[in-house]
Design a protein around this nucleic acid. Structure first.
Lengths: 205, 205
DNA sequence: GCCCACCCTGTCCACCGGTCCAATAGGCTT
DNA sequence: AAGCCTATTGGACCGGTGGACAGGGTGGGC
């Protein structure tokens, strides 16, 4: 199965990528199942494309690769839900580090970007909601994950049951377990959690 | 060999920590060498103490544990240089995930916190907000839109009613109208419609 | 004035969703 | 063997949800 999928405008697989991930697959567009990590190496960076790619693979961490790291691009990518941003000519060891960090629910940025992000965020952000804690789909069992993904696509319990060929009752059981593991209260929160949708808090309207 | 050092006010080692990291060590203050990860479980959270601890161990990722996650605390901790923030009663599996993420250079937060951080940081650094939302949203009346947005954030009818200062019944009315206008059957489909309309999601998987 | 769109509220009801109480069975570790 | 995790299902409970009846109030255009 594909573990690392690289999306590149030219469809070319850099030797360093291959070196870091021998089983890497490169494409010019999405498709071919669920990778563990999606590496986005399209230049120039297109927000709409990146955004749709992220949305199309809920739960899959997306890392943006850039031949010339630009801070604005990085922030943009992160705002769209990317879990990492690094140099496309990074060393294989570095890429592996990034892969490990993001597949375990982390956000990976270079040291300087990271500190800027942290500083900026703390200045900008103060004021509501308790924060629930949770990592990602990796904590779920295969069955729980399958049910969660069906539900995240908008299916009702009954529909998910029919698709997975199990009882609605069983769907509820898996779903309940997923809720607890992810620290969410209902299916809608689960969707929001999986999509990492930036939440807009203040609508003065 | 990984070394996990827990700093707890009471010097107590939670069973879950031991379960996650059999070689875990707990102390009430710093000392005793250089751990791979420093888990900060002091309550209440003291900025000065945390800050000095982080400074005392350059290169060592610090994760703040809280029995009751508070967003303000999380942001403060991150601003001070902590690399993670999570529930002190998190499952061993989750703690291990966090450990892996931060030891590989990642920043670990819960999904909700992560998305807020991302959104806030990008606004701060770019001076503009993502603002992707609104495909069919202009079909709605102002009130319907307000209700739809509340619901899209994961609010229940009751919560939306309270926020908009109307009765739950009225929320239902607006919501029902929004459903019909957008051609969706329930709130979850509405969320999916609002977030992902820009592109086709269901390709050939 | 009349019509219409919008906003707000009410009651009733069937259904769905989430959680509680279980139970059975297989796989795996100790 | 005992214990734990996972997957599966059952029954029951209750609150949230959505639709189907109702209305009443405002303001603008004809």
């Amino acid at each position: 199965m594909t573990k690392h999928l690289f999306i590149s405008s030219k469809g070319q697989l850099q030797p360093r990528w291959r070196s870091a991930f021998p089983d890497a697959v490169v494409r010019t567009a999405l498709g071919g199942g669920r990778p563990d990590v999606l590496w986005w190496a399209c230049v120039p960076l297109n927000s709409a494309e990146l955004s749709s790619a992220i949305a199309a693979l809920p739960g899959v961490p997306v890392v943006v690769l850039s031949p010339e790291p630009v801070q604005e691009d990085a922030m943009h990518a992160i705002a769209l839900g990317a879990r990492g941003y690094c140099h496309s000519h990074a060393t294989p060891a570095m890429l592996q580090q990034v892969a490990v960090a993001v597949t375990h629910g982390g956000l990976w940025l270079g040291p300087e970007l990271m500190s800027r992000l942290m500083g900026a965020a703390s200045e900008r952000l103060l004021g509501e909601h308790p924060a629930e804690v949770d990592p990602g789909l990796d904590l779920l069992t295969p069955r729980e994950r399958a049910v969660a993904l069906e539900v995240a696509r908008g299916a009702t319990n009954k529909e998910a049951a029919r698709r997975l060929d199990i009882t609605e009752r069983t769907v509820k059981a898996h779903l309940g377990a997923a809720f607890e593991k992810l620290g969410v209260r209902d299916r809608l929160q689960l969707v929001l959690a999986l999509k990492y949708v930036p939440v807009d808090v203040d609508h003065a309207a």
